[in-house]
């Protein structure tokens, strides 16, 4: 609960840095909270890749739905919610191991950073792909209607 609130604050901070306003700022922060909750629930049983993937899918779907409701682009609700999931910590540990001269551990951490980013990316890819497919369907339907 406490961590979820901290996720909310982190997304709120990023929302302000990227200049979101009003309802959209709150929606993006709630989106970040959702992602944080999903990530924390799934982290222990399934590991970080699965947790990040599910969190990123949740965030993308919520952003897509809220964008339809608030009539704004999906991206602006997506970005500040996704930033807290990016593995900045792993990136730092990679550098730290590199400097320590522990190449095996550094490589291990580098690969983990990439797989973590990959998990987030695949989450966005799947939902964005669905969104594009939906958009094309709607376009086709509106072209067929006689008043267009």
């Amino acid at each position: 609960m406490f961590i979820a609130f901290m996720n909310f604050l982190a997304s709120l901070g990023f929302g302000i840095i990227f200049d979101l306003r009003g309802k959209k700022l709150i929606a993006a922060s709630i989106n970040g909270t959702l992602g944080g909750i999903v990530y924390n629930i799934l982290l222990d049983p399934y590991g970080s890749v699965m947790a990040l993937f599910c969190a990123s899918v949740t965030i993308s779907i919520f952003a897509m739905v809220m964008a339809r409701i608030l009539k704004c682009p999906t991206t602006i609700l997506l970005i500040s919610a996704l930033v807290p999931l990016v593995p900045g910590g792993m990136m730092y540990y990679t550098v730290l191991d590199f400097i320590n001269g522990d190449m095996a551990l550094a490589l291990n951490d580098a690969i983990k950073t990439f797989t973590d980013v990959g998990a987030i990316v695949i989450g966005i890819v799947i939902v964005s792909g669905l969104e594009i497919a939906m958009r094309k369907l709607i376009k086709r339907a509106s072209l067929r209607s006689p008043d267009h």
Binding site: A10, F14, I17, F18, T75, L78, I79, L82, V83, P84, V86, G88, G89, M91, Y92, Y93, L96, V117, I120, V121, I124, V125, S128, G129, I132
Partner: peptide, 27 residues
């Protein structure tokens, strides 16, 4: 020290650009 560094390094992580890169590629 590590936690302080990680917490503030998150401000510089290119989350926005990664998101856009993915969405552009998918499109």
């Amino acid at each position: 020290r590590d936690i302080v560094i990680i917490a503030s390094i998150m401000l510089l992580v290119p989350g926005l650009i990664i998101t856009n890169a993915v969405r552009d590629s998918v499109n």
